[in-house]
Amino acid sequence: MTWDIKDIQKWGWRQHPLGGVIKDPGNSCQFKTGGWRTFRPVRDEEKCNQCLICYVFCPDSAILARDGKITGIDYDFCKGCGICAAECPKDAIQMIDETMAKKDNAGKFR
């Protein structure tokens, strides 16, 4: 069940759930932390050997995997800590300046 909290700051006391209990597990996925980033991890698909090490060390559940393979990085949640880049045994992840990446309209840094 998705809990509509768009206007929660305007809610009166009667509207809040009893005892502050949240019945929408994992709804923090509506709260994007990507804006915290100053450096962005960029994965080189050619260098990447799909060892999945980045997945196991990401503190923000931001390495996307499907069918046992890395498919990308979730920039909505990645805070840019750089652990994935530091731990990658193939040096397949680079940290680049976030502002540069944002300016890059061609989408080179994705």
Partner: peptide, 26 residues
């Protein structure tokens, strides 16, 4: 095997407010 572990549900969702590079969420 990591290939199996990545299929596991993500019990901890993104969007939490731990510091970047936090060891606890790892």
């Amino acid at each position: 095997k990591l290939a199996d572990l990545v299929q596991k549900p993500q019990y901890l969702s993104g969007g939490h407010r731990l510091c970047a590079g936090c060891g606890a969420s790892i």
